[in-house]
């Protein structure tokens, strides 16, 4: 059954990606150039790093819209530490640690306090971003050590960036985890039916907590990459990214109701949206128009299954 749906969704998505690449090649002479494409990868690697674990979280039946705020929080934490002279390794630890802690807070709110994920993450989104604003106000932090530029601006070999490597590595790891291990199977079950999962002996709360923490950690990592690439921190960093990341996950074929999705789809969706973003940028289309496109795309994606004849839809009888 998984193979069947793979053929349907991910293939369609793959075709869309190819069409996109073709269109941009035609529209812009600069497009199909290894250096350009390498630059393009930066538009999706950071968002992709967040989207991958977020996909797992949504498959498990939860949601987290505080991811962008976690990026901001970790960025501010690192910036503040850098201003006090911290070295790169410490900064990376702080970035990851902030993300992990923030994710754990989300996890605790949902699993221990019983707050619905949407409310909890609206709350933490406001709180984390609020802390960022409260600490920085309208200032900018720029005093990062030189070696800190490596994660976001460095290259592993040739034109393949550190960011691209990290994203690929994470994608491979999570693909194996989700689709080939018992823990991945458990995540699908928890999302499809929490009650059956619990009755089968799965520690549902523990899984959810771990997934929130993982998403937070990944947001922290994205914070490191983004801050390293930009070389500065503003409290408004990554503003609006939660829309982008959720769009990627939904475009990737992950069902918002839980229990269904694939890493392959999320990866293709990440690249598709990233290239779209980059391509439109090359054509000098302003960012806000891009967000209209993403918004329309998001609605279109979730509408397609609803508009197609019944037999492609899951029935609950």
């Amino acid at each position: 059954m998984r193979l069947q749906s793979f053929l349907r969704w991910e293939s369609v998505l793959g075709i869309v990606l190819l069409m996109e690449l073709a269109s941009f090649t035609v529209l812009s002479p600069y497009f199909l150039n290894p250096a350009t494409l390498s630059d393009a990868s930066f538009t999706f690697t950071e968002r992709g790093v967040i989207a991958l674990p977020l996909a797992l979280l949504i498959i498990a039946g939860e949601i987290d819209i505080s991811v962008a705020a976690i990026v901001a929080l970790s960025s501010v934490a690192m910036g503040t530490a850098a201003a006090h002279g911290a070295g790169t390794s410490l900064l990376i630890l702080i970035g990851l640690g902030t993300g992990l802690t923030a994710g754990a807070v989300n996890g605790a709110l949902v699993t221990l306090a019983g707050v619905p994920a949407i409310v909890a993450t609206i709350g933490t989104m406001t709180l984390f971003r609020g802390v960022a604003y409260a600490s920085l106000g309208d200032r900018v932090l720029k005093s990062y050590p030189e070696s800190f530029a490596v994660p976001g601006q460095g290259y592993v070999v040739g034109l393949i960036s550190v960011e691209l490597c990290l994203f690929t590595l994470l994608a491979v790891l999570l693909a194996v985890f989700l689709h080939r291990t018992r823990w991945g199977q458990s995540i699908f079950a928890i999302g499809a039916s929490q009650r059956v999962a619990r009755g089968s002996g799965l520690p549902v709360a523990r899984y959810k907590f771990a997934l929130f923490a993982l998403t937070g950690l990944a947001s922290g990592l994205a914070g490191i990459l983004l801050t390293s690439r930009l070389g500065s921190t503003r409290p408004s960093i990554a503003q609006g990214w939660e829309l982008d990341v959720i769009s990627i996950v939904v475009l990737g074929g992950v069902s918002v109701w839980g229990g269904k999705g694939s890493i392959a789809g999320v990866v293709i969706a990440t690249v598709t949206l990233g290239i779209l973003n980059f391509g439109l940028g090359l054509l000098n289309v302003p960012g806000i128009v891009m967000s209209i496109v993403v918004g329309l795309l998001l609605i279109a994606i979730v509408s397609i299954p609803a508009l197609l004849p019944r037999f492609t839809r899951q029935r609950a009888t």
Partner: peptide
């Protein structure tokens, strides 16, 4: 903003 967030939570 931060206070709003705390109050929501």
């Amino acid at each position: 903003m931060g206070i709003n967030g705390t109050v929501i939570l």
